Simulated assay, not measured.
Amino acid sequence: MTGRGLIQSVIESAGPVALIGGGEVPGAVAERVLAMAGPVVGADGGGEWLLRRGRMPDAVIGDMDSLAPRWARRMPPERLHRIAEQESTDFEKCLTRIDAPLVLGVGFLGARADHMLAAFSVLARFPDRPCLLAGAEDVVFHAPPRLQLTLGRGDRFSLYPMRRVSGRSTGLEWPIDGLAFAPDARIGTSNRVSGPVDLHFDGPGMLVILPAAALADAAAALLGSAAKWPALAE
């Protein structure tokens, strides 16, 4: 079980799970993610991307309005999980049904701003489910209570709050200590790395946006983070 209501897990894994979405999927980034993960899940139309490249998904989850029948027929029926309700996005349907220490998502960032904002909203509402979204230019994830990273000096390091949150930092050119962040007030984009990064947050709600080259380092940091956020109250 997923721990939220009566939603049943579809995929359970002791290691990272790759999740391919139906949006823009940069091939080189997707191949890196697939190499870092064990099981692979298609979010609705993301299943077609995998099948076209000869990769059989361990599961395809969604409302199935984007996976063409001719591709669906190529999969064992037990790997297709149609969730008919329209109250959640395909990304949310997948994230809440994957039980893993980290989900690595591709196909959720890119040209469609509305889809990207919807994905950010899901990250903020499920801080207990570590998930990193990777695109051609950026990686985005919800910050754990403590985040430690070693990146290149001068690397871009952006923070974007999805609710009111504060914290403290070392290793950033402009420290965040004593600052109150909120989406309609102070944000923390376009900061820069000045040394080993160590961030602490007083609550959930902060998204971290890094250059795409930080994919492996960010994934390792999330997997190595000892403290996790609990599920938010319904």
Rank of each mutant, 00 (worst) to 15 (best):
D99W: 05
D99L: 13
L102C: 14
L104D: 07
G105N: 04
G107C: 10
G107L: 09
F108W: 07
L109F: 07
L109I: 03
L109D: 06
A111L: 07
R112W: 15
A113P: 00
A113Y: 13
D114S: 01
H115N: 05
H115R: 10
M116G: 01
M116P: 07
L117M: 14
S121W: 02
V122D: 06
R125K: 14
R125G: 01
D128K: 04
P130S: 11
C131S: 13
L132F: 05
L133F: 14
L133I: 15
A134H: 07
A134V: 12
A136P: 00
E137K: 13
F141A: 03
F141L: 10
F141P: 02
H142G: 11
H142D: 02
A143N: 02
P144L: 01
P144R: 03
P145F: 01
L149E: 05
L149I: 09
L149Y: 02
T150H: 08
G152P: 09
G152S: 11
G154V: 01
R156C: 01
Y160K: 02
P161M: 11
P161S: 09
M162V: 00
R164Q: 13
R164T: 15
V165L: 07
V165Q: 02
V165N: 07
S166W: 03
S166R: 10
G167R: 06
G167F: 06
R168D: 00
S169M: 10
T170R: 15
G171R: 00
W174E: 15
W174H: 15
P175Y: 02
I176Q: 11
G178K: 11
A180W: 04
A182C: 06
P183D: 05
P183M: 06
D184H: 13
D184C: 01
R186Y: 09
I187R: 11
I187Y: 03
G188L: 08
G188H: 07
G188I: 05
T189E: 05
T189W: 04
T189P: 12
R192T: 04
R192Y: 02
V193T: 07
S194L: 01
S194R: 07
S194T: 09
G195T: 08
G195R: 04
G195N: 05
G195A: 12
P196D: 14
V197A: 04
V197L: 05
V197M: 10
D198R: 08
D198Q: 06
L199Y: 03
F201M: 06
F201L: 12
F201R: 00
F201G: 04
D202E: 15
D202G: 13
G203A: 15
G203N: 06
G203F: 01
P204C: 03
G205Q: 03
L207V: 03
V208A: 05
L210K: 09
A212D: 05
A212Q: 14
A213V: 14
A214N: 08
L215Q: 11
L215M: 10
L215R: 09
A216T: 14
D217H: 08
D217G: 09
A219T: 06
A219M: 03
A219V: 12
A219P: 15
A220F: 09
A221S: 13
A221Q: 12
A221R: 02
